[in-house]
Write a protein that binds this DNA or RNA. Structure first.
Lengths: 354, 354
DNA sequence: ATGAAAGCGCTAACAG
DNA sequence: CTGTTAGCGCTTTCAT
């Protein structure tokens, strides 16, 4: 990589002082320079292929124009659209996102956080909130670091939060199933130290409780993965009392339930209906195509970026909460409930009254 | 964000000059400092929560310790594992990846490239190679910028290249189909201005040509997307002469072919077998689960990063080509060919000789 | 083994 | 409108 031309080179060629070059090349200060000079400077810059050095600029302005984004795992299809949403908002505003994966590991999360601090990111977007060991988030908050939580909140830490309207998504899913005649519904919840899992699980219990004659059961999966969903559903099915419908804490858990059902010889939706959450990529290509709650991931990313930039400009932040609407996408994994013979009849004595 | 503590603050607290602090805190120069002083400096640094400023360091060393990674679209599930592979290699070595999406748009690609140059990335990993308008890649090469091409090469530009062994992957797919009795095979190729599409298409033609009695047809899809695959397959099927097997240029194209077949009332694999390429996430969860060629995406990313860092250290690069092995993953989208009645009989006069 | 001094490339007062 | 000056935080000679 050859030595790059600097602002001084441009100044020399344009016969002005480097400060003038700086002014001419910055949109915000361009008006301070005569139109003629500006033109001359720009021509010189183009001629030399001048590319400003943001490290030098950042050192001077103590603004890195970068945002740190910490997520669990980029290969989880939930996150790429979020990242795109973030970058789509940042890029036209001169900001760049710095991405870090934690794989859910606290030590890695701390290291990532540190590494992003070294790069002097102007703020964070955190999609790793957990209830419990809040090392990084709490540490960040105490260090007065600007951040926005995405999707999950961080317990008591009052960072702003951008999230989908999980509760109404779950309510819509339950309503859909009840309309199809289902009265025994299982919710495979994600780990209950995640705020999203709690919200969805609570909403499920509340929704079922509000409708007379509906039994709502909850099991907690070990993680938000296909394997965990499969395992949970295996446990339920081997318990003998199969529900007629399942709502997964996310699409991965629903997919795991689907796999478990297949291995138990149960058809979907004839024997058991399944609903997911997130409407991740390919949800419509599974067998059967997955009924699920669509979460506006791209918009959530963009909204988080917008909020963060606003707070950066203001130099402060209030703990606002932005909740984006979700929608139920009905596909072919949900259908009418079996007549009470197999599932409800399989040994469980479900009270039919509210 | 409060003012961060600097190396001078640490120096004051430890009663040494800031140069000594710099030496003590850098692993490579730590031995130049007495053990006692080093300990004192480190304690002071920890006490103050000192975080080095990489912008300042980068300005001084003219090393940003960042790598620019340019891809078409992060939401294409092909890329996340590659990114993880890259970061997995970079992170322990102190490097950070800066990601940019182009959406296949030349203007965006140029802008991204420029933006990464402003951040003084120490090198590029480019996964956007095209044959034809090579603006960015050529521009980078002429500007003496270090880069490694990933997956696709860039025509005549002699950058190093890391890729999967596409040709043998296609050959394995063809062999598999031939063993199952297929004699009329369609290849839905990606746009033929992509090096990967050319390689795979050529390999397909060669493989089919090498086996007597096998007819290999190629159609070119408009893009590497489900929709394009569906459209191509629609065209073929409405042409009247359906093949008994299809090899998609990637999994997305294969998935599109699957959708088209469904809408035409064709079953897979009973009527037509389908093979994809890449073994992207969820390939095994489609209906039917997709037989495909597994490409070591994570390793390709890691390998590209390794190669680039090596070249950065050497300050130069030769046009080496690294080809990683691929493997055929047989699932349930491939099966025995129909007896010659429907497909081969459907009006086409296929010569049975080689 | 440590300190002093210079400077990476840039922007932001302050003059003029 | 433009030039001068200073300094962001760090590393790296060069002295000592």
């Amino acid at each position: 990589m050859t030595k790059r031309t600097t602002i001084d080179d441009v100044a020399k060629l344009a016969n002005v002082h480097k400060a003038t070059v700086s002014r001419a090349l910055n949109t915000l200060t361009e008006h301070q320079v005569s139109a003629e000079t500006a033109k001359r400077v720009k021509r010189a810059a183009r001629q030399l292929g001048y590319v400003p050095n943001v490290m030098a600029r950042g050192l001077r302005t103590s603004l890195s124009m970068t945002i740190g984004v910490i997520i669990p795992d980029l290969t989880n299809p939930f996150f790429p659209p979020i990242i795109r949403g973030i970058e789509n908002y940042l890029q036209p505003r001169g900001y760049t996102a710095l991405l870090a994966n934690t794989d859910g590991d606290d030590a890695i999360e701390v290291a990532s956080f540190e590494s992003l601090l070294e790069r002097r990111v102007d703020g964070f977007i955190l999609a790793t909130g957990r209830h419990g060991d809040q090392s990084v988030v709490a540490q960040a908050y105490e260090a007065n670091v600007l951040a926005v939580m995405l999707n999950r909140d961080a317990g008591s830490i009052p960072y702003p939060l951008v999230t989908g309207d999980d509760a109404s998504g779950i309510a819509a899913a339950v309503d859909h199933l009840v309309e199809l005649g289902h009265r025994d519904i299982l919710h495979i919840a994600g780990p209950l130290n995640l705020s999203t899992s709690i919200v969805r699980s609570d909403a499920f219990t509340a929704s079922c409780g509000a409708i007379r004659g509906v039994r709502g059961r909850v099991v907690e999966a070990e993680s938000l993965s296909i394997e965990a969903g499969q395992k949970s559903m295996n446990d339920v099915l081997s318990g003998g009392t199969g529900p007629t419908a399942v709502i997964g804490g996310n699409d991965l858990l629903a997919l795991g339930a689907l796999r478990s059902m297949k291995s138990h010889g149960l058809r979907c939706p004839e024997d058991v209906s399944v609903i997911g959450f997130n409407d991740m990529i390919f949800a419509e290509d599974f067998a059967p195509s997955l009924t699920t709650v669509r979460v506006p991931t791209f918009d959530m990313g963009a909204e988080a970026a917008r909020l963060l930039l606003r707070n950066i400009q203001a130099g402060a932040q209030e703990p606002v909460r932005i909740t984006l609407p979700v929608s139920l996408i009905v596909r072919s994994s949900t259908g009418p409930a079996r007549v009470a013979q197999n599932a409800q009849g399989r040994g469980s004595s479900v009270p039919m009254g509210g």
